[in-house]
Design a protein around this nucleic acid. Structure first.
Length: 885
DNA sequence: CGAATCACG
DNA sequence: ACGTACGTGATTCGG
């Protein structure tokens, strides 16, 4: 803590900087907060780092300053303050009040001048001064006692200027900064300076003559070309200097004791941060509170004279004896429900159990090392979790199931998952941390660490369960949650834990082969290039192709030449290296991502890959798969398809069975649009792409050529994605004109689809969201963007989400049904993977026949549409060799 | 840690 | 006149 340090902040400068550096953020009420967020963030950071004894902020006030009286065009190039920014000044001042930092403004003066005046007085008092600003003009105030912290590009980085640094950077003393500006001018303030004189000249002249006045006085001694530039511009130079000069004697009452800083009013600050939804700042504030206690002495005053932070605290009792465990169980049993927070790490086990029982305290059941589920707290946990009559609420129940599984406990009676519920309420969020959703839905701040914090989490899960369920009911998403998403949690957990068996030997062989192919290809590529370079580096590759070999540049990326497959294919005729590159890329991808990538993740215990299926990631309702991603195993090219050979049944006598929905998205489109042609095609069992070709090209079904069918297929895809002639043209490699005519023909023959698309977009604009067949909801704020591209994106997403999301609804429903049936009927078959429209099973040969009936029935009848749902089933000794039955 | 690239539905 | 398909995850490079 430096009691004799004063920090002076240029409020206007920082807020403007932040406004332009940060994209327009807003809270859920639509209040735009980007500038005030950046401003607050920066101030907090500096206060934390410098820990000053005194702080003050200065703002501009009034439209006309004395500078305008001298020079009407002063700041003439400045644009009016944007509408999004103006209200943020008020917010910033509110925050300053909460931080108990005084701010100054005076009619007719700029922030700079107030800063100059404050600095002058503070220097006289012997204080050390730090000025925080984005405005280089402030550098003129640098002195032995005063330094300037200048924000660099963006706002996160700060550069500290003392006298030496100013000299190093500009070649002048701080006092000469105004002379520099008088000569050079400043376009951003519309200060003219002397035309023709730039930084170099100005610095050289000042070195010799000291100041603008000095130069003018000795104008005769100057080299003729400088004389020419300066003659007649003397007044302009003097005026420019005056405009750039910060005045230091603004007539204001200033008592530096006003500026002494006692730290913020945490409670008020937290209120504002909550209102503005500054989650990261809230976290920062709360965690500082947590650590402040143990930190150095200077912080003590924070504790003594400030109210405690209003974080959410839950009372809790630590339970250790067997009698108490029993008592907790009785209470939970009596209540019929309990929220469970497990403190533990997947794969390592549970450290502690926190139970929130309605009407009771939170209970902490500590787990002693060596405890297992046969005695101690874990046996109580087992009794609780395996009792189906007691409803259990979790946040991220799938993770809990894994943790429980580690201790041999099988969860029964899962009744709520706050993470999944929060996802349904807003599938667009990037994450669903308990802390974040507690803040969003309950308005409480969870403390960051410690037993109290964990107890608070259990309590929060209990309260969130009530709140989120209420919201789901309001949205009519409660059935989707109860009947699909919640039971799916357990299904996914089981799939993950079972994993899919892998032929490690085969994987090794593939890797070795790919090693040889890539090495050989790389050697040839280097030879053709005439030098060795890193083929994996798009930058180096671009230099070889376009600088050295002079191949034509069709496409550039933001950072340089594009070298993607599309570009390389165009260049194939130009140079023989190109085809080798395409092959190399293919092989390298297969090796690193698949052969080696998968091998590294095989569980040595089980010989299986245990992917994680994420249920709260996509905006549309689909699942995603990670570590490894088993939803993008190659199939399109023969070379990659081989990878599927390594996915095998877990034991001898088992087979791989796959079941995929045929054209599910287009069937959903037919159902939702009620388009005559689409309904008819599916009801007749026609090939949908052939049917579309027949419509688009105006020929009978039996005269559709493969070429026509292919183009129609792309049109159908385009419809699902939110078509554009440009995209279709690129995909089909036909002219934009031609693509456009396909689309026009399509809509002419399928008016139901056009009307459907129009309706979806209209409703999305009216309501702000779109829905799926099972009422899954996605908000699309992009529809209201002023940015053309973002708005168009919103419209395409509005068309696509009901289709993609409904397909997700249907397969999820099928998964739940299948899993239930398999269990009830005691099948040994294991569902192992889901790939969006396909399910993969590892099944004993003896079960295949009934399994086919079961799977087909569950999938085709998951939901009744106005067209049939068709499922194709294949069977084989591995995922590669599955054949239609 | 973002950008580029490429694998899937 | 804008610049373009929708939804994901992994690897690699290089600032």
């Amino acid at each position: 803590m430096s009691l004799d340090t004063l920090i002076v902040i240029d409020g206007n400068s920082l807020i403007h900087r932040a406004f332009h550096a940060i994209p327009l953020l807003s809270n859920s009420q639509g209040v735009i907060t980007n500038a005030v967020y950046g401003f607050t963030n920066m101030i907090l950071k500096v206060l934390k780092e410098q820990d000053p004894g005194l702080v003050a902020v200065a703002f501009d006030k009034g439209k006309v300053t004395f500078r305008h009286q001298d020079f009407a065009d002063y700041k003439g190039t400045r644009k009016a303050t944007p509408d999004e920014l103006r209200p943020q000044f008020i917010l910033a001042k509110e925050i300053l009040k909460a931080m108990r930092i005084p701010y100054f403004e005076l009619e007719g003066y700029e922030a700079d001048d107030l800063i100059g005046t404050i600095v002058n007085q503070a220097e006289a008092s012997g204080l050390n001064i730090l000025i925080l600003t984005g405005d280089r003009d402030a550098l003129q105030l640098v002195s032995p006692k005063t330094r300037v912290m200048l924000t660099r590009k963006g706002i996160t980085e700060i550069e500290l200027f003392d006298e030496g640094k100013v000299w190093d950077r500009f070649g002048v003393t701080p006092g000469q900064i105004v002379d520099l500006k008088g000569l050079q001018g400043d376009p951003s303030d519309n200060i003219p300076g002397v035309p023709g004189i730039g930084e170099k000249t100005a610095v050289a002249l000042l070195k010799d003559y000291g100041s603008v006045e000095g130069i003018i006085e000795k104008i005769e001694h100057l080299p003729p070309r400088f004389q020419k530039l300066l003659r007649g511009k003397e007044d302009q130079a003097i005026l420019s200097k005056k405009l750039a000069t910060i005045i230091r004697d603004v007539p204001m009452e200033l008592d530096l004791s006003q500026c002494s800083w006692r730290g913020p009013d945490h409670q008020r600050l937290l209120e504002i941060f909550k209102e503005l939804e500054f989650k990261s700042l809230i976290k920062q504030l709360t965690s500082e509170q947590g650590t402040a206690k143990s930190s150095r002495e200077g912080k003590k005053k924070f504790e003594s004279d400030l109210p405690p932070l209003e974080t959410y605290q839950a009372g809790y009792q630590t339970v250790t004896s067997q009698e108490d465990f029993d008592e907790v169980l009785v209470q939970a049993s009596h209540a019929g429900r309990a929220a469970v927070f497990l403190d533990g790490v997947r794969g390592k086990g549970i450290r502690a159990v926190y139970l929130a029982v309605p009407g009771q305290d939170v209970y902490l059941l500590t787990v002693k090392p060596g405890d297992d589920s046969s005695h101690g707290s874990l046996s109580a946990l087992k009794a609780l979790c395996e009792n189906e009559a007691i409803k259990k609420y979790f946040h991220d129940a799938k993770d809990a199931i894994w943790l429980l599984h580690h201790h041999g406990i099988k969860l029964q009676g899962l009744a709520f998952d706050t993470m999944v519920a929060a996802y349904l309420l807003n599938p667009a969020a990037s994450h669903y941390d308990l802390t974040d959703i507690a803040l969003e839905h309950l308005g409480i701040v969870l403390p960051p660490e410690g037993e109290t914090a964990m107890a608070a989490r259990a309590e929060a899960i209990l309260r969130l369960t009530e709140e989120l369920f209420k919201k789901l009911v309001q949205r009519e998403e409660d059935r989707l949650f109860i009947e699909v998403e919640l039971p799916l949690v357990a299904v996914l957990a089981e799939m993950e834990m079972a994993g899919v068996a892998v032929d490690k030997q085969e994987l090794k062989e593939i890797s070795a082969e790919l090693h040889h192919s890539t090495e050989a290809l790389a050697a040839k590529i280097h030879e053709l290039a005439g030098e060795n370079f890193n083929i994996n580096s798009p930058k180096q590759l671009g230099q070889i192709l376009f600088d050295k070999l002079k191949l034509p540049v069709y496409k550039k990326t933001r950072t340089g030449y594009s070298t993607d497959a599309e570009v390389l294919e165009k260049l194939a005729e130009e140079h023989e290296i190109v085809d080798l590159l395409l092959q190399y890329r293919q092989m390298a991808k297969l090796k690193s991502t698949y052969a080696d990538g998968l091998a590294a993740l095989v569980d040595p215990q089980t010989g299986c890959l245990h992917s994680t299926f994420h249920q709260t990631v996509t905006a549309t309702g689909r699942l995603s798969s990670a570590e490894p991603n088993l939803q993008n195993i190659p199939i399109r090219l023969a070379s990659g398809r081989r990878i599927r050979k390594v996915f095998i049944p877990r034991q001898k006598g088992n087979l791989i069975l796959t079941a995929d929905y045929s054209q599910i998205e287009l069937r959903i489109l037919a159902h939702m649009s009620q388009d005559k042609s689409f309904l008819d095609a599916f009801r007749q069992g026609q090939d949908i792409h052939t049917r579309t070709a027949s419509e688009v090209f105006g020929v009978p079904l039996d005269q559709v050529t493969p070429e026509m069918r292919n183009r129609a297929k792309a049109v159908n895809f385009g419809i699902v994605y939110g078509i554009s002639d440009f995209g279709l043209a690129r995909d089909l490699k036909v002219s934009r004109q031609e693509a456009k005519s396909y689309i026009e023909n399509f809509f002419a023959r399928c008016p139901g689809v056009r009307h459907y698309i129009d309706r979806v977009i209209r409703e999305a604009r009216e309501r702000g969201y779109v829905t799926t067949l099972l009422n899954r909801r996605r908000y699309l704020p992009e529809l209201f963007s002023k940015n053309f591209n973002i708005r168009n994106f919103g419209e395409r997403a509005a068309m696509n989400t009901p289709i993609q999301g409904s397909a997700a609804d249907i397969i999820k429903l099928a998964m739940v049904k299948i899993s239930k049936e398999l269990k009830e009927r005691d099948f040994a078959t294991q569902m192992v993977l889901q790939v969006h429209d396909e399910l993969i099973f590892d099944a004993p040969e003896a079960e295949i026949e009934p399994l086919i009936v079961l799977v087909r029935d569950c999938m085709q009848n998951a939901l009744t549409l106005d067209v049939p749902l068709v499922v194709d089933i294949k069977l084989g000794p591995n995922w590669y060799e599955t054949k239609p039955i």
